[in-house]
Write a protein that binds this DNA or RNA. Structure first.
Lengths: 341, 341
DNA sequence: AGGTTTGCCTAAACCGGTTCAGAAGACTCG
DNA sequence: CGAGTCTTCTGAACCGGTTTAGGCAAACCT
């Protein structure tokens, strides 16, 4: 079956030159005559030579792979389409370069730190993506100490030596709130994501600011862990109290969809009795009823940008931050004029 | 920062023995006196030696990584929580062994085949998981030819040299149909998954059989690609025709949730006017309205079983098939007695 | 002319492990 | 006591590339 792998030594012998020269020719580096170069390439081709990643790894001390460590409760992970799309985006830039993606899904943050350490000490990856950025993220100093190139998904709130790919969630949240206000809403609540996560607390801050700018009093906010279950709980709490909000801004779509379910269950009409908005514009949003008004983000663009930036960083030693265009509000049916403001 | 990596040569020098002996001691293989062994281990420990995966890879011709290639439209991938959970399950068995998971998300089947080839020729992985099994799956002969250990997720419909992890979907579908019939439904339709995918066509066959066994005439089936959008389209077609079905069995939850949305949009009451059931019991099902009656499956158990089986296969050269317990129907509110049978 | 540079190439070391042939010493056995 | 066997260990080859030091000849000075 597996015909004996042909090595550069075979090519060298066939071409009557030294191993070193073959290596030079193959990597087209100077110091090889044009004539020899084509002959060597031709012979390598004819012999069906393919480079041995393992040998190359050993001598160049690179692994030709990038890492992504995801620390999330599998439950939360499942309902969040961010990662599949993000990964698909990353792959579009890695694959052409012959780089692989090493994925780790770990249950908690402690394991996460250990995982980074072992990825490095095993030399498994040449760089990593840092997602779900947290406040004062301990992974940044860790990776700095480990000397591993990294790209952060989101702008860290601490000093960071790494380039970041970020998108400002503020405009999307602000647009949402303005839209709701323009429809006549005055009691607007927010179901926030995890306050430990930067995008969670930033969306919340954006919400607070937007209310203030609309001249409204501070609204209710409930913190969650971004999970569908927590979103449902929060919605229930908000909607079963006295004088419930007429609109709820959810920090992500899965929670908003759960909110829709809760509203229906409570016999409330959406958007007549309560308006609901989401964030991310996942696949589902178009197909729930009423279709979800939400802010569109583009996870696969993140993936592409992150991949490119990490490649640049590794090749050039430095890479600029990337600011992705802010998400725009997509208006569908789940938000409307309140029946009883 | 990065202190010069300590190698077995350092340990050997320090212990006053040869490199070979150190290697033997470290891998605890016979031929080392108990005395030397502990001394070498002690010194390795003291020096902070850690094995170089790269060097080991080169000399043992193994990569200590397993591969998963996912060929799916990113859109479909995003709404399907199978893979995140599956991967989390796989990781629980890989991580303790120091194995990594190499993930590839590719857009189409052609790229998929190329990806397998390059994973092998690069020696990136020691084995792979074969998911989304198709009829007459070309990946099986390919992997056989490439000599790569593999585990199939689902039982292939062709001769296969690989162990498979499978679960029989028939009981779940049958239970669903029986339940609907017991509620009084007579016109039951099916929104099937992709006929190219084994689990798609098997669920459909199970549906047909179940109807027959209930003494009902063949029901309507619509084929889809498992995507939310296709599910919504199918639901719309089914529900807008003359004498629409009173119940729709969807081949997965995302489509069922879309079906729920379509029903609402058409002004139909669920379950009074139409009952809807899903398959998989994803996170969302509990939180849509009405909560989805569906069949529970356990993707992370698949992951664990697949991981263990692949490890066994690689270690022992053979591993038995695993039959996972069939999914049971989870009764919630989306299916009920038809108002107008 | 002699010395320096340049272009092309080779040999060998190196990356950090594993593995194998065989040496040296201790032990067994007839 | 000498041959044979075990155990323990060494040295070197090996995995398949990259990289460096240096050799040799032709071209380039002045």
């Amino acid at each position: 079956m597996s015909e004996p792998k042909v090595t550069i030594a075979d090519v060298a012998r066939e071409a009557g030159v030294s191993k070193g020269l073959v290596s030079f020719a193959l990597n087209d580096r100077p110091g090889v005559s044009a004539e020899s170069r084509v002959r060597i390439l031709e012979i390598a081709e004819r012999l069906g030579w393919t480079p041995s990643l393992r040998a190359r790894s050993l001598s160049t001390r690179r692994s030709f792979a990038l890492g992504l460590v995801i620390a999330r409760d599998p439950e939360v992970l499942g309902s969040d389409p961010f990662f599949p799309s993000f990964i698909a985006g990353v792959e579009t830039v890695l694959a052409p370069q012959g780089l692989a993606l090493v994925l780790s899904v770990v249950p908690d943050e402690k394991t996460e730190m250990r995982t980074y350490r072992s990825l490095v000490s095993d030399g498994r990856v040449d760089g990593v993506f840092l997602s779900d950025l947290r406040h004062n993220d301990p992974r940044i100093p860790l990776l700095q100490e480990l000397g591993l190139p990294a790209v952060t998904l989101g702008r860290p709130d601490t000093e960071s030596p790494f380039p970041c790919i970020s998108v400002d969630d503020t405009p999307g949240v602000a647009e949402t709130v303005r839209y709701l206000v323009s429809l006549g809403h005055r009691r607007i609540a927010h179901v926030a994501g995890s306050p430990a996560l930067l995008h969670g607390s930033r969306r919340r801050a954006a919400f607070d600011t937007a209310l203030r700018e609309a001249g409204l009093p501070a609204g209710q906010s409930i913190e969650t862990d971004f999970s569908v279950a927590a979103g449902a709980d929060a919605a229930r709490r908000l909607l079963t109290q006295d004088s419930p909000p007429t609109a709820i801004v959810f920090a992500n779509d899965p929670m908003a969809i759960a909110g829709l379910g809760v509203a229906h269950e409570l016999g409330l009409r959406v958007p007549d009795d309560v308006s609901i908005t989401g964030f991310d514009d996942i696949d589902f949003t178009r197909y729930v009823y009423p279709a979800l008004t939400t802010v569109r983000t583009a996870p696969s663009d993140w993936g592409r940008a992150a991949g490119r930036t990490l490649l640049d960083l590794m090749a050039l030693g430095t890479a600029p931050d990337v600011d992705l265009p802010a998400g725009r509000l997509v208006i569908r049916g789940s938000a409307g004029t309140p029946l009883r403001p």
